[in-house]
């Protein structure tokens, strides 16, 4: 299935859940509404003809204009096609639906995105930090993050 067909099918079925898209890019992507990622991903995973059974990567992004985002790289082992999904949220309301029920891989990836960017994945079964210590101040890959002077009594800057 081509990216265009995937996009048209999603648009017809979900309407407003599909935001903008760029289908002539090197990696064609489709934008999703942050509060409806779960149902779209569930459809892409289960529906015959799509069968996206493999989440290659789930990354967090800070676009440095007040927006945060999550990028999903999907691949289908049966159909041999792939697509990229993007969901946007704001720094003030960093909420995106979790897809960890669809792909087990997403569990740890979403925890990493939460740890680094502070994106809250609604419906995640165990949303804790995965890399930094539990008491680490802030989310270090955000563009407005400032390195703390001290952490547990240890000086951090060089």
């Amino acid at each position: 299935m081509t990216p265009q067909e995937i996009h048209d099918n999603l648009k017809a079925k979900f309407g407003t859940a599909v935001a903008d898209a760029k289908l002539d890019a090197l990696q064609p992507w489709i934008g999703l509404a942050p509060d409806r990622t779960l149902e779209v991903c569930r459809f892409l995973h289960d529906e015959a003809g799509f069968e996206f059974d493999y989440l290659s990567c789930l990354s967090g992004v800070d676009y440095n204009d007040g927006k945060l985002g999550v990028v999903y790289h999907l691949f289908s082992m049966n159909q041999k096609h792939k697509i990229v999904l993007k969901a946007l949220c704001t720094r003030e309301q960093p909420h995106i639906q979790s897809v960890s029920q669809v792909w087990g891989t997403a569990n740890w990836h979403e925890r990493e995105a939460f740890d680094m960017f502070g994106i809250v994945f609604d419906g995640h079964p165990d949303l804790r930090r995965i890399l930094c210590g539990d008491d680490y101040p802030g989310h270090p890959l955000r563009k407005d993050f400032k390195v703390p002077e001290f952490y547990n009594g240890m000086k951090v800057p060089y």
């Binding site: 930094c132 680490y136 270090p140």
Partner: peptide, 20 residues
């Protein structure tokens, strides 16, 4: 010894174990 390649942007790295 001193943080190595993480000396500037290593938000998670102790800049030398002699600090502890």
């Amino acid at each position: 010894n001193c943080g190595g390649p993480y000396w500037e942007h290593g938000y998670h790295v102790l800049k030398g174990v002699d600090r502890v």
